[in-house]
């Protein structure tokens, strides 16, 4: 009887240790999986980035804020930008000139994402280092329900 009890106890211990090992293994694998998932996850594209089209060297200009409101039946958009200054030249290390000439415009879309008006003219914008500007655009027609912001650099 005592032998049978000790056999049962030993079997139980063995099962318990196997169960514990399995649990540990599963947890480790889960942690590894989560870690690997987080490491390969692409950087989040913000809504501001999605709504901004950049052309040419405009990396020094940060889009700080974007908002729109329906004013007198027309969509009015406001984009706040700031020139944080160009970084030094990667190859030579030369400091780039602060003042840059940019052009910007708004693109107006309807509920289906179709452009509702002909392209706007590029409007010149001069920004020195650390200068910010609130750029306001008014939709040309009440059909416009969304907007995109486009910025480029001109010589």
């Amino acid at each position: 009887m005592a032998i049978l009890f000790s056999y049962k106890s030993a079997t139980h211990d063995l099962k318990h240790s196997i169960y514990e090992s399995c649990l540990l293994l599963t947890m480790t694998a889960t942690i590894f999986l989560f870690t690997s998932c987080s490491s390969v996850q692409p950087t989040q594209i913000t809504e501001k980035q999605q709504m901004t089209t950049r052309m040419g060297e405009t990396s020094a200009v940060d889009v700080l804020d974007m908002r729109s409101v329906l004013r007198n039946n027309l969509l009015t958009a406001q984009v706040s930008v700031k020139n944080r200054g160009p970084s030094p030249d990667a190859k030579t290390g030369e400091v780039q000139p602060d003042t840059k000439l940019y052009g910007y415009r708004f693109k107006w879309l309807d509920t289906n994402g179709m452009v509702v008006f002909t392209d706007e003219a590029w409007k010149p914008l001069t920004l020195t280092r650390d200068q910010s500007a609130d750029l306001v655009g008014v939709a040309p027609t009440p059909d416009a329900t969304a907007f995109r912001f486009e910025i480029n650099q001109y010589k």
Binding site: R71, N72, L74, T76, G137, V138, P140
Partner: peptide
């Protein structure tokens, strides 16, 4: 552009 958008909002 400035004139038209402003007038439309008036």
């Amino acid at each position: 552009e400035t004139m038209v958008r402003s007038m439309l909002q008036s």
